[in-house]
């Protein structure tokens, strides 16, 4: 057999090489969509980094910064002179020796855009998120700083646990996970991601939007939402709900058996009481049409349908109607969230 296919994929296909291409091609460089951030002082170039954020970054520290972004998608280059500083987040080791990239962290260091902070089983780290808060990275975690600029700070949690305390206005701090994106809406929370992409979000203050494509969950303080590796965010529930109730939510959200899901829904509706409004509101858009009226009635028992909203609108899943009902729960204003997402997503 000649080597034409091996040389440039011309000639008769070689099955072995095709097999290797299929297998090893999965490892191809995927950083084409990344960005380079280049900064230099007047005399010399000092730092180059990339990020993979979709948001293009204006220079944070100085109008003289150079920000260059290279990508498989179209990218933007900002050129100015003379640049001075480099965007990063200060990192401090709390326990053990976390790594930034391939370098073990001794005491404190800097996490630059594009770099990954890794903790092992005995290390923890604290990251200062600009001036808006801090993130504690627990053992056995991998987080990457995706981007940082005024009003937009983005982490990617590949696996492990982080605890965020954010004091900035809502929407400034975003954490990507393999199966959902957590958007801070003024809050403190713990986010855990397993190696398979499943996870758990637990909110202790404010609220968090958790979403995967069109599926989104608003998780208020005192509540949690599971994350499924395939389906994304599950239905929020308050942490003080009993185990049986929470299991029923998980079954309804993630079980593949329609019968078990239906039974779980019946159990949830049979046990509604004060405090379940958040769960019920999410179920409105997650149940099938035949069950929606029962969920709406259960929710109306907790929080009346607001003025100007009709039951029919709710049953049609009219977004404005659902948002108005959410606002009536008194947990936060969905209108603001919609506007933010429209502008930023």
């Amino acid at each position: 057999m000649n080597d034409d296919y091996l040389w440039d994929a011309s000639g008769p296909p070689d099955p072995d090489i095709q097999r290797l291409e299929r297998l090893l091609g999965r490892l191809r460089s995927t950083r084409n969509a990344g960005e380079f951030r280049v900064k230099a002082d007047a005399a010399d170039l000092a730092v180059v980094r990339w990020t993979s954020a979709r948001f293009l970054a204006p220079a944070l520290a100085a109008a003289a910064a150079i920000v260059m972004m290279v990508g498989a998608t179209w990218s933007t280059v900002r050129v100015a002179s003379p640049p001075s500083t480099f965007s990063y987040w200060p990192v401090a080791a709390i326990e053990g020796r976390p790594r930034i990239g391939s370098t073990a962290l001794a005491g404190s260091g800097r996490l630059a855009v594009g770099q990954t902070l890794v903790t092992d089983a005995v290390s923890r780290a604290r990251v200062e998120v600009g001036t808006i808060g801090e993130v504690t990275v627990d053992p056995d975690s991998r987080v990457r700083l995706v981007s940082t600029r005024d009003g937009h700070h983005r982490f990617a949690l590949a696996s492990g646990t982080l605890r965020a305390v954010i004091t900035a206005p809502p929407g400034q701090f975003v954490v990507e996970t393999p199966s959902a994106t957590a958007i801070d809406l003024g809050c403190a929370y713990t986010l855990h991601v397993d190696e398979d992409g499943s996870g758990l979000l637990r909110v202790t203050a404010g609220w968090v939007s958790l979403q995967l494509a069109a599926r989104e969950s608003f998780v208020p303080a005192g509540a949690s939402a599971r994350i499924d590796s395939a389906l994304g965010p599950g239905t929020p529930r308050y942490d003080d709900e009993d185990r049986e109730y929470q299991d029923a939510i998980d079954t309804f959200d993630f079980d593949e058996d329609p019968g078990r899901r239906a039974s779980a829904l019946r159990a949830l509706l049979a046990r509604t009481h004060s405090g379940d409004a958040v769960t019920l509101w999410h179920l409105l858009s997650r149940v099938g049409e035949p069950d929606r009226a029962a969920v709406a009635d259960a929710l109306a028992d907790q929080v009346a349908i607001p003025a100007g909203v009709t039951r029919d609108q709710v049953l049609r899943l009219d977004r404005d109607a659902l948002d108005a009902w959410w606002n009536a729960l008194g947990l936060g204003d969905a209108t603001w969230w919609r506007k933010w997402r429209l502008e930023n997503w």
Binding site: P58, V70, A72, W74, S75, T76, V77, R78, V79
Partner: peptide
């Protein structure tokens, strides 16, 4: 700043 577009 000057914004330049880079090709895919």
């Amino acid at each position: 700043d000057h914004v330049l577009e880079l090709p895919r």
